[in-house]
Design a protein around this nucleic acid. Structure first.
Length: 417
RNA sequence: GGAGGGGUGGUCGAGUGGUUAAAGGCACCGGACUGUAAAUCCGGCGGGGAAACCCUACGUUGGUUCGAAUCCAACCCCCUCCA
């Protein structure tokens, strides 16, 4: 591989961020010469982002750290149409208010990773609804449609696969790549954006934007994609027991976020350290080389670094402390999920299954009972073997008690009143 | 507009009148083994109930039947081919 002159290109190649790149040498030279504005587009279909987007977020962070300007493009315009590939999701068209709320939530996530502002390398967020909503069909077709060759578009993977499998593809979907290409052109005109980045699945769309820029305005635009991250055992990354691994504290507690990284598969540790932390490569090499149980130390480092980025140093330390108390000492920690029950209720006795469900460890009483029957439920570390077990204030120690579902999921119950 | 195929539990996918809360796979949860790992093995996997049992569920709404995810009708949606 070529030796890159720009910090950005060198670092992201070394760390495994690059799946594909257009004109890497030219881009490298450009990055070495001037401050480059680059963008990645995100849908605003949810209040937050999850770890599936984290690779690209880290990519923008590196961009900024190496002296360039990141731009976050929110798909406010495209979100309004609804993603045609999501069958059931098609119907729930989001209202403008919902989209605005989602954008605000996503911005708060980005605020942890990027510095926003008006300075030359400060990040900014833009919404493609600003220009897509007002497009007039005929002028748009005449000005831009002429530059798209159907013959060419049919050769793109996303389209070709659909055609080969003879599955339906709507005109709307077919237009997606055109709209996305237009976004790139528009951003170049508005903000001088030169580079679009995104997931590997976006390659075709990005290339279309690059070509549209050349055809319409004679500008050189660049594209770069990051690989789809799967775990070593092949699973798509980002699922936890509770569901998606969200990046905001409201939807996933920092402690659970920490636990997610702590439970990384051995084979993924090195790769994840390179992608999701900013530790020096030689340090990562050292951690990665740890064998056997020692690799757990590397996982703790990974958990700490990733959590510190998302939630701050203090939250990461608190999560680590709770994990240490719970797993290494069998005790309890402040960060465990906590529920309170009225003193009177506890005095009267609460059925164990009810308490497990209320603590969020099980989704229903039935599930709680199954958990107990399966021997996975514990109260203050003692196995609960009777689904009729009443929990009373006699079970309290130090004003609280610990419930456990399996070895990894714990919650605290406290009394109130 | 015409002809044909299809909509099943988180997902994929069987089932074509009753023992079907609905095979099997995946995902997920618990147990064993470990290192809060992987792999493997075991168990579980709609809700309520201590249990008997009750309720909800196979696109929607009606109907036939002692009884329907399964048959009929209308409607909605998806797909393939033709115009």
């Amino acid at each position: 591989m070529t030796a890159f002159a720009s910090d950005f290109m060198r670092i992201i190649h070394e760390r495994g961020f690059v799946d594909a790149c257009t004109h890497a040498e030219e881009l490298d030279a450009l990055l070495n010469r001037e401050v480059v504005t680059a963008y990645i587009g995100y849908d605003c279909t949810a209040r937050s982002l999850h770890v599936g987007s984290l690779v690209s977020i880290m990519l923008l962070r590196w961009l900024q750290k190496t002296g360039h300007r990141p731009l976050v493009l929110m798909g406010g315009g495209t979100t309004r149409i609804g993603d045609p590939t999501g069958r059931d999701d098609m119907r729930k068209l989001l209202t403008d208010d919902e989209i605005a709320a989602n954008m605000a939530g996503i911005q708060s996530v980005f605020a942890k990773y990027l510095t926003f502002g008006d300075g030359p390398t400060d990040a900014r967020m833009v919404n493609n609804a600003d220009w897509l909503d007002g497009l007039a069909y005929i002028p748009f077709l005449r000005d831009y449609g002429r530059h798209f060759s159907i013959n060419r578009m049919l050769t793109f993977d996303s389209v070709r696969m659909r055609l080969e499998r003879e599955t339906h593809m709507s005109f709307l979907e077919f237009n997606y790549m055109i709209l996305q290409a237009y976004d790139f052109l528009e951003l170049n005109r508005r903000d001088g954006v030169r580079l679009q980045m995104g997931g590997a699945d976006q390659w075709g769309n990005i290339v279309n934007g690059v070509e549209l820029g050349r055809r319409c305005d004679g500008v050189s635009l660049y594209g770069l994609t990051v690989p789809l991250i799967t775990s070593a055992s092949g699973a798509k990354m980002g699922k936890s027991a509770q569901g998606a691994v969200w990046l905001n504290a409201e939807q996933l507690a920092p402690y659970d976020f920490w636990q997610f990284w702590r439970n990384t598969e051995d084979a993924d540790v090195g790769r994840f350290l390179r992608l999701f932390t900013e530790l020096p490569l030689d340090e990562i090499a050292r951690l990665e080389a740890l064998g056997g149980a020692e690799i757990n130390e590397a996982k703790k480092v990974l958990a700490h670094e990733a959590t510190a980025l998302a939630h701050g140093e203090a939250a990461a330390l608190a999560a680590a402390e709770t994990a240490r108390a719970v797993f290494e000492q069998g005790g309890v920690g402040e960060d465990l999920p906590t529920v309170t029950v009225p003193a009177a209720e506890l005095a009267a006795g609460v059925p164990a299954p009810t308490l497990f469900t209320r603590a969020g460890l099980t989704a229903s009483n039935g599930e709680a009972k199954r958990l107990i029957k399966g021997g996975g439920a514990r109260l203050n570390d003692a196995v609960v073997d009777d689904i009729g077990r009443l929990v009373t204030d006699a079970d309290l120690s130090g004003g609280e008690l610990k419930l456990s579902a399996g070895r990894k999921h714990h919650a605290l119950v406290r009394v109130e009143g």
